[in-house]
């Protein structure tokens, strides 16, 4: 089945105010940067964004925060963003901080038809407040619920016309689980190829999870912390 849409404009048709979006990536690595640019252009408001991080001030989801499009962030770590901190401390922005492994599993569960699961992460901390606790094998666990989204927007290295995706290196991160958990999943890829080009043995996200795919116009792929060692 052909999932190809012409461009980012067509890919994001149907995104409206008050929707819940999942956005793949870890830090600035593996984020759907073309789609984020388009979301800023669209000016959609009151969004709930599920993403491990919130970008930096002038890049990634940080751009949507600057434009005050985000009502609520669901993330595990948001430390690189002054505007985020300002909006959070002033109460403009709702923030739900979730342990990273629980966030990944909650997305996976949402896509896998598992409504909730028990995890030891967060037991005895404020994350556990209001959550059911049960002891398994002598150890307390807390009940975490699945996450789903109206749109999941992911970024892959290569994709084919069927929506099959291959990620590169550490840019995989949250993308595969989020791809599973979107009512509509949009994949932006660096390279879009005809079906049959990619080796089926090497597919990370099977096309069934992807409704729309397009090749991004350009990828800046900004590096957040450039660290190098001296040449020998």
């Amino acid at each position: 089945m052909n999932k190809v849409v012409k461009n980012v404009e067509e890919a994001l048709v149907g995104i409206e105010d008050d929707m819940t979006l999942m956005l793949g990536g870890f830090g600035l690595c593996g984020i759907p940067e073309n789609s984020i640019g388009q979301l800023v252009k669209l000016g959609t408001k009151n969004l709930t964004c599920i993403s491990n991080n919130a970008g930096v001030d002038d890049y990634g989801i940080g751009l949507m925060l600057q434009a005050k499009q985000v009502k609520k962030m669901i993330s595990s770590y948001v430390g690189e963003n002054d505007e985020f901190e300002r909006q959070m401390l002033s109460g403009e922005l709702e923030v739900d901080l979730i342990p990273q492994g629980s966030l990944a599993e909650r997305c996976r569960a949402g896509g896998a038809g598992i409504p909730a699961f028990f995890t030891p992460a967060g037991y005895g901390t404020e994350v556990a407040e209001g959550k059911e606790v049960r002891v398994f094998n002598g150890k307390p666990h807390i009940l975490e619920s699945a996450l789903n989204a109206d749109f999941a927007i992911v970024k892959a290295w290569k994709g084919d016309t069927e929506g099959n995706l291959i990620y590169k290196a550490a840019a995989r991160n949250f993308n595969p689980m989020m791809a599973m958990a979107g009512k509509i999943t949009v994949a932006e890829v660096e390279e879009l190829v005809p079906a049959g080009t990619l080796d089926p043995n090497q597919i990370h996200t099977p096309g069934i999870f992807v409704q729309r795919i397009f090749q991004g116009e350009k990828f800046e792929k900004r590096i957040e912390q450039r660290t190098v060692r001296k040449n020998a």
Partner: peptide, 23 residues
């Protein structure tokens, strides 16, 4: 840019390395 650690620093891999999703 696609190869960073959890501190968002650029890194490398050693022979025998593997990549996987967050779950």
């Amino acid at each position: 840019a696609d190869l960073i650690n959890a501190g968002k620093q650029t890194i490398t891999t050693v022979p025998g390395a593997s990549f996987f999703d967050s779950a």
